[in-house]
Design a protein around this nucleic acid. Structure first.
Lengths: 329, 329
DNA sequence: CTCGCCATCTTGAACGATCCAATTCGGATA
DNA sequence: TATCCGAATTGGATCGTTCAAGATGGCGAG
């Protein structure tokens, strides 16, 4: 392991020029078969690996993708980001890219971080998780023609940039239809405050499914910030006010709270959560399951499509969630 | 934003040579104050950022640290890694380093990944989370003089390499003493199978605290793989066998299971978990809290110490956990 | 036989930073 | 005034790769 193996070492060993070695790596079709094999042999014999820094200096591409890691707030929903990041790392790896982490406390600092990462590391692309109405980050990135994908729709203009998302409305609708089929009619919903794209979408699926079945959803829903305690509080409120026989929740945290509130009701109130977190699986909570691994994979697909210039690839992907049935529904 | 700002652009703007600009950045003390300020002004006026690839090519250092991200298994304990990674990213950032993610399915592939990352990206260091007896990964890294730190002690030889860890035994001992002070005597322990460094350490803290108080721990402990269902099962077993009045668990997952098993006991059996996950906070479970942010920071400290050649820095750090008291204890 | 063409391979230059050796310059010393 | 010294600055070489342009050789057409 004494001295480094460079492209020149390989060239000497295979008795060709540096450029030919480079061609074997980057444009194999213009090299004669026999030569190509000889170079390949030299590469594996010497254990040569292309130096990324030198390559980057010439090509301007780092094969690095940035993703943000947030502090765990809830711990339950945190695992969603966790699983997404894991999938992203795996798929990016297979596509020849690596994932670089960054953090930021607010949008302004996050944008400053973009600038820094682009300037010093020449990042190839960004993956943003979660978007909100009028997101300044996507505007900044788009304004500079920086390739990026969001996991989460741009709620203002669907064609603003490439995105991957899971159809939350379809998930809550499916959950609601399952409960309807089981004979429930007073099916409540506990969700997030109006105005968040994700929260409104999940509520809409529940509402539309009830409408389609001829059930009036008026008065059957409550809104709060995410959290177990909040879910428990609102569920007690619903039980007292409208006596629902089932409830669909916008998150597993809210659903866990609801579970605590309904303890002892007879017949048991059915509960369905959202995200299919491992905690839900552990306590037997039915939940809408997002295909996070696939979402991450499609993000990488979209990025490589943009980076490698395949403009034919679709610019957005909407994945369908699945209902994980357990004993609470 | 048309043309790139290089060190030459800054030099021209400040009417000095490239080398002087480089000195301002890397050895400010050898540049005259007046010149230094002029260069600094030019740097901020032009928005210059040193190109990392070019710097790396000359110096051989990438200012990149690799960390592994694992698939979420339990979801509760997953948030521990999550919080650690977040802290790592934050502190590394402050120290001028960035965190690169990787995954691997087994030790052999993980070592192959090390080789790849070192060869193509010239990583400066690795952070390994969790170590086991006879870990082949640390042996490989140490054998190549690759700088690395583990979060978790090397259970075979404490001086094998730099590490940061949290004193698990102290945590369970503290939890046990708290229960003893509250008048409990039959304090049980639910932990992991014998042979895991972390699990044995946490059990030892409980056992020693009982010994110190003159209580015989025989028969009061049970072992299982981690999980909520497992915790519930073993707690029922303990209740039937030895009627404990309190229990200390090796993880919050096990403790949550125990909580389900003791429902309705009167007086309530006290439960203390381990890791102070957000789920524990949400359901009011008392738990031993690991200073994950500080652990991450100390990992970065140790690494920068090694990387910058400060051999005076300590090679290992043992942090003390704190007891987060809630209504289950 | 010569020319041109194609496929293949080689040579020199560049990317942007740092390291090294050489040079300038103001001031102190002889 | 000439010489020297050290601090500050300068130009050239270099890291490993890819790009652009040039060299080589074989082969068929004119």
């Amino acid at each position: 392991m004494a001295d480094k193996v460079t492209i020149a070492t390989v060239a000497r060993h295979a008795r060709v020029s540096r450029q030919t070695v480079s061609n074997v790596l980057n444009a194999p079709h213009i090299v004669r078969e026999e030569t190509r094999l000889r170079v390949q042999d030299a590469i594996s014999a010497l254990g040569y690996r292309a130096n990324q820094a030198a390559r980057q200096m010439r090509t301007g591409r780092s094969r690095l993708i940035a993703a943000r890691i947030e502090p765990t707030r809830d711990g339950i929903n945190g695992s969603v980001l966790d699983r997404f990041l894991h999938g992203l790392t795996e798929t990016a790896d297979a596509a020849g890219y690596r994932v670089l982490l960054y953090t930021a406390t607010d949008d302004e600092r996050e944008i400053a971080t973009y600038d820094d990462l682009l300037g010093t590391y020449e990042l190839d692309a960004f993956v943003l998780v979660g978007t909100k109405h009028g997101d300044p980050r996507t505007a900044w990135l788009a304004g500079r023609d920086v390739p990026f994908v969001t996991f989460g729709r741009p709620w203002d203009a669907l064609d603003a940039h490439p995105w991957v998302d899971v159809d939350g409305a379809a998930g809550t609708a499916q959950a609601t239809r399952h409960l309807l089929a089981a004979g429930h009619r007073r099916i409540a919903f506990i969700g997030w405050p109006l105005g968040s794209g994700v929260g409104d979408d999940r509520r809409a699926g529940w509402r539309d499914a009830l409408h389609a079945a001829g059930v009036d959803p008026t008065g059957l829903h409550r809104e709060t910030e995410d959290g177990i305690a909040e879910g428990e509080r609102l569920m007690r409120d619903l039980l007292a006010a409208v006596e629902p026989t089932a409830v669909v929740c916008a998150s597993d945290s809210l659903a866990l709270g609801a579970l605590q509130a309904i303890r002892g009701t007879e017949p048991p109130v059915s509960v369905i959560g959202f995200d299919d977190t491992p905690v839900a699986a552990a306590v037997g909570l039915a939940s809408v399951s997002q295909p996070l691994g696939e979402a991450a994979a499609r993000c990488v697909d979209l990025l490589t499509g943009v980076l490698d210039g395949n403009h034919e690839t679709p610019t957005h992907v909407l994945l369908q969630p699945a209902l994980a049935l357990r004993h609470t529904a």
